[in-house]
Design a binder for these strands. Structure first.
Length: 883
RNA sequence: GGGCGGUUAGCUCAGCUGGUUCAGAGCACCUGCCUUACAAGCAGGGGGUCACUGGUUCGAAUCCAGUACCGCCCACCA
C-alpha cells in the first residue's frame, strides 16, 4: 500500500480478504493435538434470507470463534441449514398455488420434487450472506438437516426411542392448524387475548320423548357453532342450583338432539352460568370429561376448519362464518338469552397465524418425563451454564411441566415416519423398508413389500435439529448410544458455546440437551448465550409487514461489514433486547475510519536514526505499555463473562482515547520532522496489538492494515496471530500519567472557558517540589511549567489536581470579580463537604462499626478537604486585595 | 391466573459480595476550533431526588417489604 486514502473504504477490502481466507482454508479445522473450541451454528431455515437477528447472532458467534482461534485453540464453527418443515412446505405450496397447482393433485413424489427444486434454488443463499458478514465458518463442514446422512440419523433416533418404548401413537386432542393442515406442538401455539363474545344459550329440558318442555337451563359459550357436537351438559355436583337437573336430558337447540346432563367437579360454579356444554371433539377439557363419562365423540369440523355433514346444519361453512350465522339462527329461534363482550385467550399458529382448532387425531408422541428430568439436571448442576442466568428459571419451569412431545406433522417436507402398516392395521417400526418387511413377515410370512404402507406423516423439524451438535460430526451416533464416536465427534463434542435467541430455548436448546445426554451421556455445550430480540428504535419487533427491518446486505454495502458488526454489538448485552438504530452502525463506520487514519499517521512518520527519543516520548511509550496490559486484563475478564459489548467498548476507548488522543499526540514529532526508531517501533507494535485485540470484532479492516504494517508472506493472516497478552506493569506509571493528564485537562479547560488561543504558550505554575510528566504537560497543553513554593501576588487562574495546586498566570486578563465568585462557590462546596465528612467521623457508631479502611479513607478526605479549603481561603484573600 | 426479569442522563445500558469524591459509559445535545492522520475529526461543557413508599444499617442506586408501570415465559374457566 503506497498511498492511503483519507477515508476507509470497506468495499475495496472485504471481498478481497474473505477470498484470501477461503483460499487458504483458514476457517477449516481438523482434529489435532490442540484444545478444541467448537460452535455449531443455529441452523437458519434453508430458504431463509438474512435478517438483523441473524446478523446479531452470527456476529457474536464469529467474535467468539475468532477470539478462540487467536487464543491458540483449534476453533471449529460448523455451519448449516435447517429444512424447516412447515415454513418451507408452505412456501412451496404457495408457489405451486400461483401456478394453479394443488399439492394433493400432484401427489407426494411430485411435490417433493418441487420442494427440492425450491431448496436448490433458494437453499444456501443465507450461507452466502453470512460470508459477507465475515463469518469464519468451516464451510467444508456445511450440513443440512435433511441431507441423507442426517435424515438417516433422525430415522434411527425414531426407531431407537420407539423400541425403548418412549414413542407411542395415540389419538389425542392436538393443536390443529387448519391453514397448514397439520398438527403443531404446544410450543408452536401462541395465545393471544382476543375479543370475542360470550353467548348465553337456552337448552330446553326434554320431555323424555325428544320434545322440549317449558323448563330450560342456560349455558354460556364462546363457540356456538359447536353446539351440534355437544355430548352432554355438565354441572358441578356441589352446585345446589342445578340439583333439579340431575338425570334430566336436554335438547340441543336448532337440531333438537337429546343429550344428558352429567356432573363433574371440573365445572366452576361461579363461572358463566355454572352449566357447561361438553363438546368432546372440539375442546381439550371437554374431551377429558368425555372420557371420564364415556361420552360419544362427534367431530363436526373438518381439517379446513369447515363444518362437515355431521353438523347437520351449516354444512360446508367456515367455523367463523358458521358462528355468525348460528347466532342469528339462535336468536330467531329464541334460544339466545344474551350476548356479552368477552376477551379470552385464543391459540394461534406460530407459522400461519391461523386460529388453532383443537382436533382429535392420531399422532406420534415422544415421552418427555425421563428426558426432561435428565436435561434439567444438566443445567441445574451447572454443567451447562445459561447466560444470562435468569433463563435457568424459565428452563426449570418448562422442564418440570414438560408434556409429551407431538412429533408427527401432516406434511411431506421432512423425514417420513418409519412406521409401516400391515393390511391388518397393525404396524412395525423399522429404519428401512427392508427391515420393516422382515419385521412384518415375522408376524405374517405371506406379506410382500407392496402390502406395507408407510405412515404418511413426517417428523417435526425439531426432531432433527435436536441432534445437530452430534449429527453434524457423526450422523451414525444418534439412535445408537453404543456406537463408537468417530474421530470428529470424539474431538469436537461437547461443543463449547451456543449462541441463540431465548425464543427457542424449549424448541431447540432444551431438546439438544436431552438428545446430548441420551446419546452421548454428556451435555452438548458448556455455555448457552441467549441474545435478545432485535427491535427497531421504538421497540417493535422487526417484521416484514411493518417494513421496519433493514436489509443487512444493504447496510454492509453502505457501511461495511465491520461497521455493521460493531453497530450490532455496541448495544447488545446478553439477554437484553436490542434496539436497532442505524446511528450505531454509523458509529462503527466512524471507528473504522478512526483506525484507518491513525494508521495513516503512524505509517506516514519518517524515521531517522539521527533523532533521539525525547523524555516525553519515552514517557508516552512506557505509559502505553502499562495501559495496554491493564486494558487487556479488563477485556479478557469481559470475554470470560460473555460481556461482549463491554469488551468491545473497552477496546474502542483504548484505541480511540488512549492510543489516538493521548499516546499518538504525545509521541507525534513536530510537523515535518522525523521520529526516532525506538519510538516508531513501539508505536507500530502497539498498533499491531490493538489490531489483534479488535480483530474478532472487526475482521476485515484489521486484516487489511495488519497485512500492510510489514511485508507478510502468502498464507500469513491476523486470524492466527496470537491474542496480545497482558504483561506485568508498574501501576505507578499509570498514576503518574494520569496526574500529568489531569494537569493538561485543567489547562485546556481554562483555555476553552476563556477563549485563549491554543497557539499561545501559557505559563503554568505548580506548587510542588516535583510533579510527574512535566515535558508531556508542556507539549500537550502548550504551557511552560515552573515549580514554585508560593504563587506570590500574580494574577491568574488556579485549579487542583488531587491535592496539588496548579496556577495559570494570566496577567491582566483575569476578571477578578468572576474568579472571586467562583472561588467562594468552591469554598462553600468544600466546607459543606468537610462538614459531611466530619459528621461521619464524629459519629461514634460509624467509627466503631465501619472497617478500618473506610475510616482511614474518611480521614484522608478530611485532610484533603482541609488543605483545599486552606488554599481557597488564601486565594480569596489575595483576590480581595487585588480588587 | 401463575412464574421470572426490569425501572439509573434525551436514548441504549454499566454499576460484582452495602463504604474510595459513586452517581458512570457510549451515543445524542451545547460551545469553540477547517491545529498539515481523521469535520466520520479535535478540545471543552451542560444534563440524573438511581420509579414510588416504608424498613434494616453508623452508612442504601446496591439489602428487605409493599405500590405503580414495563417486558418476557407458562396457562385454552367454557
Amino acid at each position: 500500500m503506497k498511498e492511503l486514502a483519507a477515508k476507509y473504504s470497506a468495499k475495496d477490502v472485504e471481498d478481497k480478504w474473505y477470498a484470501y481466507w477461503l483460499a487458504h482454508k483458514f476457517f477449516h479445522s481438523e482434529p489435532n493435538e490442540k484444545e478444541p473450541y467448537t460452535i455449531v451454528i443455529p441452523p437458519p431455515n434453508v430458504t431463509g434470507i438474512l435478517h438483523m437477528g441473524h446478523v446479531l447472532n452470527n456476529t457474536l458467534n464469529d467474535v467468539l470463534i475468532r477470539k478462540a482461534r487467536m487464543d491458540g485453540k483449534n476453533a471449529c464453527w460448523v455451519p448449516g441449514t435447517d429444512h424447516a418443515s412447515i415454513a418451507t412446505e408452505s412456501k412451496v405450496v404457495a408457489r405451486l398455488k400461483e401456478q394453479g397447482i394443488r399439492k394433493e393433485d400432484i401427489g407426494r413424489e411430485e411435490f417433493l420434487r418441487h420442494a427440492w427444486e425450491w431448496k436448490e434454488e433458494h437453499g444456501g443463499i443465507i450461507l452466502q450472506q453470512l460470508r459477507k458478514l465475515g463469518c469464519s465458518c468451516d464451510w467444508d463442514r456445511t450440513r443440512f438437516t435433511m441431507e441423507p446422512a442426517l435424515s438417516e440419523a433422525v430415522i434411527n433416533t425414531f426407531v431407537y426411542f420407539y423400541k425403548k418404548g418412549w414413542i407411542y401413537k395415540g389419538v389425542r386432542m392436538v393443536n390443529w392448524d387448519p391453514e397448514a393442515l397439520t398438527a403443531v406442538s404446544d410450543d408452536e401455539v401462541i395465545h393471544k387475548d382476543t375479543k370475542s363474545h360470550f353467548y348465553h344459550l337456552k337448552y330446553y329440558i326434554s320431555d323424555g320423548a325428544g320434545q322440549p318442555t317449558d323448563k330450560f337451563l342456560v349455558i354460556a359459550t364462546t363457540r356456538p357453532e359447536t353446539i351440534m357436537a355437544d355430548a352432554a351438559i355438565c354441572v358441578n355436583p356441589a352446585d345446589e342450583r342445578h340439583h333439579w337437573l340431575k338425570g334430566k336430558k336436554v335438547l340441543i337447540p336448532l337440531i333438537n338432539k337429546e343429550i344428558p346432563v352429567i356432573e363433574d367437579d371440573y365445572v366452576e360454579m361461579d363461572f358463566g352460568t355454572g352449566c357447561l356444554k361438553v363438546t368432546p371433539a372440539h375442546d381439550v377439557h371437554d374431551y377429558e370429561i368425555g372420557l371420564r363419562h364415556n361420552l360419544p365423540v362427534l367431530d363436526i369440523i373438518d381439517e379446513h376448519g369447515k363444518l362437515n355433514e355431521k353438523a347437520r346444519i351449516l354444512v360446508g361453512e367456515d367455523r367463523f362464518v358458521a358462528r355468525k350465522k348460528i347466532v342469528k339462527m339462535l336468536e330467531e329461534s329464541g334460544n339466545l338469552v344474551k350476548t356479552e363482550e368477552y376477551i379470552s385467550p385464543v391459540g394461534y399458529s406460530e407459522r400461519t397465524d391461523a386460529v388453532i382448532e383443537p382436533r382429535l387425531s392420531a399422532q406420534w408422541f415422544l415421552k418427555m418425563d425421563q428426558l426432561a428430568k435428565v436435561a434439567l439436571e444438566t443445567v441445574e448442576s451447572g454443567r451447562t451454564q445459561f447466560i444470562p442466568e435468569k433463563y435457568v428459571n424459565t428452563y426449570r419451569h418448562w422442564m418440570e411441566n414438560a408434556r409429551d412431545w407431538c412429533i408427527s406433522r401432516q406434511l411431506w417436507w421432512g423425514q417420513r415416519i418409519p412406521a409401516y402398516y400391515l393390511p391388518d392395521g397393525s404396524y412395525v417400526v423399522e429404519a428401512t423398508p427392508e427391515a420393516a418387511l422382515k419385521a412384518a413377515q415375522a408376524k405374517n410370512p405371506s406379506l410382500k413389500a407392496e402390502d406395507l404402507h408407510q405412515d404418511e406423516d413426517v417428523l417435526d423439524t425439531w426432531f432433527s435439529s435436536w441432534l445437530w451438535p452430534i449429527s453434524v460430526f457423526d450422523p451414525q451416533k444418534p439412535g445408537h448410544p453404543d456406537h463408537q464416536p468417530n474421530a470428529d465427534l470424539a474431538y469436537y463434542y461437547p461443543t463449547n458455546d451456543l449462541v441463540t435467541g431465548p425464543d427457542i430455548i424449549f424448541f431447540w436448546v432444551a431438546r439438544m440437551i436431552m438428545a446430548g445426554e441420551e446419546f452421548m451421556g454428556k451435555e452438548p455445550f458448556s455455555n448457552v448465550y441467549f441474545t435478545g430480540i432485535v427491535r427497531d428504535k421504538i421497540g417493535r419487533k422487526m417484521s416484514k409487514t411493518l417494513g421496519n427491518s433493514p436489509n443487512p446486505l444493504d447496510l454492509i454495502e453502505t457501511y461495511g461489514a465491520d461497521a455493521v458488526r460493531i453497530g450490532m454489538l455496541l448495544c447488545s448485552s446478553a439477554g437484553n433486547d436490542i434496539f436497532y438504530d442505524e446511528a450505531q452502525i454509523k458509529q462503527g463506520a466512524a471507528f473504522c475510519n478512526k483506525i484507518w487514519n491513525s494508521y495513516r499517521l503512524v505509517k506516514g512518520f519518517a524515521v531517522s536514526e539521527d533523532v533521539k527519543q525525547t523524555d516525553t516520548q519515552r514517557h508516552g511509550v512506557d505509559w502505553f505499555a502499562a495501559k495496554l496490559s491493564e486494558t487487556i486484563g479488563v477485556v479478557e475478564d469481559h470475554y470470560r463473562k460473555f460481556r461482549i459489548s463491554d469488551a468491545l467498548m473497552t477496546i474502542y476507548k483504548l484505541f480511540w482515547d488512549d492510543y489516538c488522543s493521548w499516546y499518538l499526540e504525545t509521541i507525534k514529532p513536530p510537523f515535518g520532522q522525523p521520529i526516532d526508531p525506538q519510538t516508531y517501533k513501539a508505536t507500530l507494535e502497539y498498533f499491531e496489538a490493538l489490531l489483534k485485540l479488535i480483530h474478532p470484532v472487526m475482521p476485515f479492516i484489521t486484516e487489511e492494515l495488519w497485512q500492510d504494517i510489514m511485508p507478510r508472506k502468502e498464507g500469513e493472516t491476523i486470524m492466527y496471530a496470537p491474542t496480545p497478552k497482558a504483561e506485568a506493569y508498574d501501576p505507578s506509571i499509570l498514576e503518574k500519567f494520569s496526574l500529568a493528564a489531569e494537569a493538561v485537562n485543567g489547562v485546556r479547560a481554562i483555555r476553552a472557558q476563556r477563549n485563549l488561543p491554543p497557539k499561545e504558550t501559557l505559563p503554568l505554575k505548580i506548587k510542588a517540589s516535583a510533579y510527574p510528566g512535566i515535558p508531556l504537560i508542556e507539549k500537550m497543553a502548550n504551557v511552560k511549567v515552573t515549580l514554585i513554593e508560593e504563587f506570590g501576588d500574580t494574577q491568574g487562574v488556579a485549579f487542583m489536581v488531587g491535592t496539588h495546586e496548579l496556577f495559570v498566570t494570566l496577567e491582566g486578563r483575569v476578571n477578578v470579580a468572576e474568579e472571586l465568585e467562583k472561588s467562594r462557590k468552591d469554598l462553600d462546596y468544600q466546607q459543606k463537604f468537610l462538614a459531611g465528612v466530619r459528621a461521619k467521623l464524629s459519629n461514634e457508631r460509624f467509627v466503631q462499626n465501619a472497617p478500618a479502611a473506610v475510616i482511614e479513607n474518611e480521614r484522608k478526605k478530611e485532610a484533603d478537604s482541609l488543605s483545599k479549603i486552606k488554599s481557597l481561603e488564601e486565594k480569596i484573600a489575595f483576590l480581595e486585595t487585588s480588587m
